[in-house]
Design a protein around this nucleic acid. Structure first.
Lengths: 236, 236
DNA sequence: CTTTTTTCTTACCGCAGGGTAAGATAACCC
DNA sequence: GGGTTATCTTACCCTGCGGTAAGAAAAAAG
């Protein structure tokens, strides 16, 4: 793989670059956490991939748990930014749900986004765990309110918002377990099929003349992974 | 909790009952694995709950991994039995998909069923892991073929069977992460809402006169957890 | 060029937890 | 009731891994 070579390059010399090195550690860590799981990933594994030794990691993080926490925070930030954009957009509740699904699926393709979904927050003790669970509840809350909005504006059938949100979230989160970047389907293709399935349902209604075209695929703000330095920089 | 007291009772005296004791160990183990995860559950934790000591476990299982494997096997067997019944039933493809969803959700309420979904099969090494992954692929294969069947008999819209199966499986599996027996909704209620959501979709179509009643809730064979002894006994 | 600061390494500690040795004792069998 | 077998305990081993101590060496500062 060339990917760890790229990450290792940051540590090739001893040039001072705390932010860049911190970021490289997190990138290596999140990859390994997704590959092998948190507990089965030793700090030596992370260090090896960066061609440094374990104690070097302790210059950038207090302990293993903090590395995991920072991975979560990064992913949660990505998700929240993406959600903010959707809420600001117009359209019916159903349109917004579709936009939510598209953005969320794009996030799953990103390591840090996928980590939030797949990693077990039970590894985080006490306060840190509570923080992440709060973020997650927030995501759920927002999806529910989109559904509620859709019911109120008449675009969504009178479903139970709580259950529907769980069903949608489950279907989306599950993608994180089987999605591989090398696969045949792009995230956009997956998103379109999921949106269609959830809006129209499984039932075959044949080709009805009056059927509206199930939420137009409007120009979607595709989520791009922003680097730490960019995020630190003042908003343009 | 009274539940561990019940399990501990099996080991209260030294009466010979290998099958019963093996089963009690698995029940204690699966509970703990679901509560704390596999790696965070020590063999001492399992032993404590049964009011025995760690080495006693080694009279019934070769090692920790075998305990996990047997939990998986039990759960997979439950799922497979339930799937066999659905396939033998009649009805359209859509009816069968609905039946699949109902049975599957019932299984998630059972510890061993939930374990198959929630536990990380990456903990199992080599051969054992491959075995479980084969079971899981089998489940996916069957759901896909039900969808295919539905498309062919005209009850299901022309969706991508692979993606639709992933979406349904994801939504169902996710239940395992939030479902608590003490919750307000019964598994039957959850099942009905999920079935309706997936057959009809989110789109509000108002109250159309000609709309068929979205798959009748036929007398469903509710999956009952069978004990090991029962399964070992000759089929009645 | 010297001083200071940061970065990273070698060597090590401690302990949790899976797994084993050896034997006591209770249950079963004839 | 004596021999046999299954059951379970106390005591222990040992590896893996998170985390630390102490210091070498390079980079930055002036």
């Amino acid at each position: 793989m060339a990917k760890d070579a790229i990450l290792a390059k940051v540590f090739a010399d001893r040039r001072r670059d705390p932010d860049g090195k911190r970021e490289a550690i997190l990138r290596a860590a999140v990859q390994l956490f997704l590959e092998r799981g948190y507990t089965r990933t030793a700090l030596n594994d992370i260090a090896d991939r960066l061609r440094i030794t374990k104690p070097a990691l302790y210059h950038y993080f207090r302990n293993k748990e903090e590395i995991l926490l920072e991975c979560y925070r990064w992913g949660c930030l990505l998700i929240r930014e993406s959600l903010d954009e959707i809420t600001s957009h117009g359209g019916t509740g159903l349109d917004k749900i579709a936009a939510f699904m598209r953005s969320y699926i794009a996030l799953i393709a990103i390591d840090f986004g996928r980590a939030v979904i797949r990693l077990d927050d039970g590894e985080l003790s006490g306060e840190a765990g509570a923080e992440i669970r709060t973020y997650k509840r927030e995501i759920d809350r927002r999806l529910r309110s989109l559904i509620q909005e859709g019911i109120e504006d008449g675009s969504v059938a009178p479903v139970d918002p709580k259950l529907a949100a769980f069903a949608i979230a489950g279907a989306l989160n599950w993608i994180g377990t089987w999605y591989r970047p090398a696969g045949t389907l792009s995230t956009e293709e997956i998103a379109e099929k999921y949106v269609k399935l959830f809006t129209d349902g499984l039932t075959n209604r044949g080709v009805q003349a009056g059927s509206r075209p199930a939420v137009a695929a409007r120009g979607l703000s595709v989520v791009r992974e922003r680097t730490r330095s960019e995020r630190r920089a003042p908003r343009t």
